[in-house]
């Protein structure tokens, strides 16, 4: 058991544990904090994968920006946050999630499975995974990546687009979340009013719709006729 393996196990526990807590905890602030922990864990993974740059980027971007964002949002909406954990479909979601994980585990696991002539499991992957080829760690991948990102032959355009995307996102976010005043506020309030009566999922859908009236009439007529006999 090498050091990296132990590290890996510890980090994966951290990541998965905190992720699990994110999705289950009632207190939303705690969820945001657990999220931060999870991000740290992921950064640790990046280090293990010899992608130090990304680890740093992860910490900066995710933990430094996004998590702060989450905390702001939590703070701003604190008065309507309820203590509920799961919504009405959490069982189906849990089941599907578990199923999907199992599926993926089988496909990606170290087994070799043959279903109907097709082979699954990474033991069958054409490139040797469960084993051998240790590829050299890249030396200056950051520089290569950087030059790739600015070069028009490679990823220059997506890079520019990414920039545009960020700009647009920023502008959009500012505009969407602006404070509405006066008539705008009233109109928005009226349009998005929640009709609580609609919300009740347990209320049965109306049985008789106008279209089936004649049918109903026939049915009751038939029923009456049959009963006469």
């Amino acid at each position: 058991m090498t050091l990296q393996q132990i590290l890996f196990i510890v980090i994966s526990l951290v990541v998965l544990g905190s992720a699990f807590l994110v999705v289950t905890t009632r207190n939303l602030f705690h969820a945001a904090l657990f999220l931060v922990v999870s991000f740290f864990g992921v950064a640790g993974f990046y280090v293990l994968l010899d992608a130090g740059f990304f680890a740093a980027a992860q910490v900066l971007v995710y933990i430094g920006a996004i998590s702060i964002l989450f905390i702001f949002a939590v703070m701003l909406t604190r008065d309507v946050i309820t203590a509920q954990r799961g919504n009405s479909q959490w069982q189906a979601a849990a089941f599907v999630g578990a199923f999907l994980f199992l599926l993926m585990a089988i496909l990606l696991g170290p087994f070799s499975i043959t279903i109907r002539g097709h082979q699954f499991g990474n033991a069958n992957w054409p490139f040797d995974m469960a084993g051998d080829a240790i590829k050299a760690a890249p030396s200056n991948f950051v520089g290569t990546m950087g030059s790739g990102l600015v070069s028009m032959d490679q990823y220059g355009v997506p890079f520019l687009l990414a920039g545009v995307l960020l700009l647009v996102a920023m502008v959009g976010a500012i505009w969407v979340a602006r404070e509405l005043r006066g008539r705008e506020a009233e109109k928005a309030a009226a349009e998005t009013a929640i009709d609580d009566a609609d919300m009740d999922m347990n209320q049965p859908v109306q049985e008789t719709l106008p279209l089936v009236d004649t049918n109903e009439a026939h049915e009751s007529h038939d029923a009456a006729a049959v009963e006469k006999h």
Partner: peptide, 15 residues
Amino acid sequence: CIGLYGVLARKNAIA
């Protein structure tokens, strides 16, 4: 999958 569960099952939009 954990994240997926959370998306589908959490009762708060921020979560």
